[in-house]
Amino acid sequence: MPTGESESRADVPQGALALMILQTLRSLGPQHGYGIARRIEQVSGEAFALNQGTLYPALVRLEQDGLIKAKWGVSENSRRAKFYSLTRLGERRLEAETRRWQRVAHVMARFLGPQEEGS
């Protein structure tokens, strides 16, 4: 969706998107695709561009890997929607990945931090 405003937005890295989806489902509970997309855009402060050609394949992959499961339901708008929720495996994976990301982020922050201060 290369529109004018999206030029400043970054593409979401693959692994990160999966993690975001999992985290969204943990904090909000079962969500439909649109809800997940909204949440990610909100939390990222519109920093990430998320198009449907990215989100839905990611959901399919997570579902195939058994990390999330899907079920048709009715949304708050009284519309039919497919709701995704975390599986036990998904919860465990989310925990492990969160720790890994935090460690990497921590190291990166320390690595990059002083240079910023020094400049």
Binding site: N51, R61, Q64
Partner: peptide
């Protein structure tokens, strides 16, 4: 328009199909 115009749905569907294998 947000969806990428008239073909957007089709594109999204294609990429899902690719992902599904």
């Amino acid at each position: 328009r947000d969806f990428g115009g008239a073909g957007g749905v089709e594109i999204a569907r294609e990429s899902v199909r690719d992902a599904r294998g």
